[in-house]
Deep mutational scan, measured.
Amino acid sequence: GTEIELESKNGQREHYTATSEDEARKIIEKAVRRGIKRIELRGASEQLIRDMQEIAKQIGLQYRTDGSL
């Protein structure tokens, strides 16, 4: 699965493990709508990382991946 670590603007951290790319995408989209400061992805697919970079650029988000592409 993909591990997703979120940090909201007030510094609250949340951790999710998505079993599918679809689920990961839903978690990320929800977080973005809620207003999130930072997202870290571990074990994400190349496609998901590309999507994440696109989203991050659009809304000026900090993100990090573990680089295991």
Rank of each mutant, 00 (worst) to 15 (best):
G11F: 02
G1C: 14
K26S: 11
Q47V: 06
H15A: 06
L6Y: 08
K57V: 07
G60V: 04
R34C: 12
G1Q: 12
E7S: 05
K57N: 11
R13G: 02
I49G: 03
E7F: 12
R33Y: 07
Q58G: 07
A44F: 06
E5M: 15
L48F: 07
G60Y: 05
H15I: 13
L69F: 15
G67W: 02
K37P: 02
I39C: 02
E21D: 15
T2Q: 03
E40A: 13
T19C: 14
D22Q: 09
I27C: 04
D66G: 04
A31E: 02
M52I: 15
E54F: 09
L41W: 02
A56C: 13
K30T: 11
E5Q: 08
T2E: 01
R13V: 13
Q12M: 10
S68M: 07
G11Q: 02
T19Y: 13
I55W: 12
Q58R: 10
R64L: 15
T2M: 12
G43V: 02
Y16H: 07
K57T: 14
M52G: 00
S68E: 10
K37E: 05
E21L: 11
Y16R: 03
A31R: 02
K30D: 14
E21A: 06
Q58V: 06
E40K: 13
S20I: 02
S68F: 05
T65Y: 06
I28V: 05
T19R: 14
Y63M: 15
L69W: 15
E14N: 05
L6D: 01
L69S: 11
Q58A: 12
G11W: 01
K30V: 08
L69M: 12
A18W: 08
M52D: 00
Q53K: 11
S20Y: 03
I49R: 07
R64E: 15
D22T: 07
N10Q: 05
K9L: 13
S45P: 04
D51A: 11
Q58F: 09
V32C: 09
A44P: 03
L41K: 00
Q47M: 05
Q58K: 11
R64A: 15
T2R: 01
T2Y: 12
K37V: 12
D51L: 13
S45G: 05
E29K: 07
I28D: 00
I28L: 10
R34P: 04
A18N: 09
S20G: 05
L69P: 11
R42L: 04
S8V: 11
G35P: 03
Y63D: 08
I49M: 10
Y63I: 15
S68H: 08
Q12E: 14
E54T: 10
R38K: 11
G35S: 04
I39T: 00
M52N: 00
I49C: 10
T17M: 14
K9C: 15
I39K: 00
M52R: 00
L41F: 06
A56S: 05
L48A: 02
K30H: 12
D22C: 11
I27Y: 10
E21G: 05
I39Q: 00
E21K: 02
I59A: 15
I55R: 03
L69H: 07
A44V: 04
D51H: 12
I4S: 01
Y16W: 09
E40C: 15
D66K: 03
S68K: 06
L48I: 04
